[in-house]
Amino acid sequence: MKVAVVGAAGYVGGELLRLVLQHPDITEVVATSRSQAGRPIAEAHPALASLTEARFAGLSAGEAARGQDVVFLSLEHGESSKVAGEVFDAAPGLVVDLAADFRVRDLRLYERYYGPHPAPDLVSRFTYALADVRGAELHGAEALAAPGCFATAAQLALYPLRSVGVDGIPALFGVTGSSGAGVHPKPTAHHPARANNLFAYGVLGHRHDAEVVQAWRSWTGEPTATARLMAHSGPFVRGIHLTLHATISPDAAARVGDLFSSAYSGRPFVRMADAPPQLTHAVGTNMANIHAVGDASTGEVQVMVVLDNLIKGAGGQAVQAMNLALGLDESAGLRLAAPFPC
């Protein structure tokens, strides 16, 4: 199987390359980058030196897509919309977009968080690929929109509660590492500003709210339902730790653990933990580790989710969704043994 990764020089692109270069069903990989064209891939991603001696290609997205079985678009937000048309014209077997461009089908909801959509006619071609929920439903899809990192954690916390009548607006408090800010230096990702520090951002309007609200409305059947993501930047490099707090009926709260175990039964990359999960236990893997607790006297529930923002929240979920869409082993290339401690 032949694969192209368009925009492969960033952190997500590097993790995606690490996965596809070791995938048992992938025989050929092309990595493109406008800024790194002609340079060895291992210069941008030193950890890949043992996997490839190839160089970044300076091909356009359309050129890279021609003759490929799968094309991954690992571009900054807004860039996928500019090139998706030429990628589709090249007729690859499957397109997987890792940016936010095609995740939100409701164009009014999209506009609220991102502004007017630059390619609205292409939105309906993409299937939202929350792999651990959609599973086999993704089989046969020809274009996938991989979820965002915070959105993945938030939706995995919400999904098992979709039919138990959550009272009010569920609160989702999440903390992410500095790698979520991308490879290009920013004041808030600079080490002196990030180390020994914790701060909120995207207050009452984080962009991943759009995906979370879209899913929550679909799952509950309530067109005005909402959920609130409270995003924070933490003093570490990789991972997301998210805690959901909500109120449901006391009876449902008493069995919340069973609700989650049932919802994710048979899902290979969701692990139900017996205690609050630790972030380092998920970093470097495609796992989402979850612990759910309910108080039968008040109806309160607290759900904790930890995952790696660059793998489960980006490249790993994209590969998992590719496997499902193509009818491959869902776990192919993703049984990752992470270092510990890290």
Results as ranks from 00 to 15, higher is better:
159 Y>E: 13
328 L>Q: 15
256 V>K: 06
88 F>E: 05
294 G>P: 07
298 T>N: 12
202 G>N: 05
331 S>D: 10
268 P>S: 10
188 T>I: 10
81 S>W: 02
114 Y>D: 08
281 H>A: 15
56 F>C: 02
140 G>K: 13
268 P>W: 08
48 L>G: 02
322 M>L: 03
220 T>K: 14
92 P>F: 09
113 Y>C: 01
99 A>N: 09
214 Q>P: 11
25 D>W: 06
45 H>R: 04
117 H>T: 08
207 R>Y: 05
109 L>F: 04
5 V>F: 09
296 A>N: 07
195 A>K: 15
232 H>Y: 15
9 A>L: 00
135 G>S: 06
333 G>R: 06
225 A>G: 14
133 V>T: 03
160 P>Q: 14
294 G>F: 05
99 A>S: 07
212 V>Q: 10
242 L>Q: 15
99 A>I: 01
259 L>W: 04
285 T>C: 08
285 T>N: 06
188 T>S: 13
59 L>A: 09
225 A>F: 10
170 P>H: 04
136 A>P: 15
298 T>E: 11
228 R>W: 01
205 G>T: 11
194 R>P: 00
41 I>Y: 01
60 S>E: 00
256 V>A: 07
272 M>Q: 11
154 A>M: 08
19 L>K: 11
258 D>A: 10
15 E>C: 12
337 A>C: 04
72 F>S: 02
231 A>L: 14
69 D>I: 05
293 V>I: 14
215 A>T: 13
342 C>F: 15
46 P>T: 03
212 V>E: 09
79 E>H: 14
86 E>N: 01
173 F>G: 00
340 F>V: 05
5 V>M: 10
214 Q>W: 10
122 L>G: 03
